[in-house]
Nucleic acid binder design. Structure first.
Lengths: 135, 135
DNA sequence: CCGTATCCTCATCGATACTG
DNA sequence: CAGTATCGATGAGGATACGG
């Protein structure tokens, strides 16, 4: 089964906003990022992934994986010969292009939490800390 | 009225994810970014902003502005002497720290839309195009 | 003009049970 | 193991009307 790609049109958005909304649609929701982060540690089976992404139900995991696959962010391999069937999910090359985005969100979020706790005049702008995050 | 800052605990998230969720909570939803983008063009009045952010209702605009103010991203000035009252919203210095994040979302979203249309092997990674976006 | 109050709809997400 | 089916809760967001 090839990968169809439904994209919300966001016809109401003017150019710049549309791209931002596209990203948010894909990364938003409760589980997309946790799943991607989980897979960034290497290919995983369904159940394995469910254990890693704490709290997610089979229904949600299945649904989210389907969406991520449709967008080319991960690939799905079935070993039909095994009993019971084994399915492996792998973060696609293309999925790696999300890392800068995730890193930006991570850096700002981290900085913001500190900012809220002790409102300093001008806290240092976000710096690169992505690598160990995704390790 | 000073600015209280409620922060969802995300106690279920392990370190890295929590920061990402913090950011997504703040930028997620339908209107946060459009409002910030709208204010990036300079201070605006309530009605003015509502016209700029097409489709938003007074209720949502009011609610979102309150949240953004609580997080220190914008400031609210009231000219009580004017009739009728005039209220001006300004993107705070701190709000500017979001630009790199917005830029990352914008760049990836733009790249992704192209990627979906014509799946090239390795499209050029996101490049800097933030400044004119926010102009 | 600057909002708030009320009521409503709908998508998202969770719980549980079940199938191949 | 890898999901699907069904039902139900919750909250974001919209429509409309009204108050300061």
């Amino acid at each position: 089964m090839p990968i169809p790609q439904p994209l919300p049109s966001h016809h109401e958005c003017t150019g710049a906003m549309r791209s931002v909304r596209d990203s948010l649609d894909l990364l938003g929701g409760k589980w997309k990022l946790p799943i991607i982060l989980g897979l960034s540690g290497g290919p995983k089976r369904f159940k394995q992934l469910q254990r890693e992404v704490t709290g997610i139900t089979a229904k949600m995991l299945s649904k989210e994986l389907k969406e991520l696959e449709m967008n080319g962010l991960l690939t799905r391999q079935v070993q039909a010969d095994a009993v019971p069937v084994a399915v492996t999910y792998t973060l696609a090359e293309y999925g790696h292009t999300l890392f800068p985005v995730i890193e930006a969100l991570h850096a700002w979020g981290q900085q913001h939490r500190a900012h809220i706790m002790r409102p300093a005049p001008l806290p240092a702008p976000p710096t690169a800390v992505a690598e160990e995050v995704l390790a």
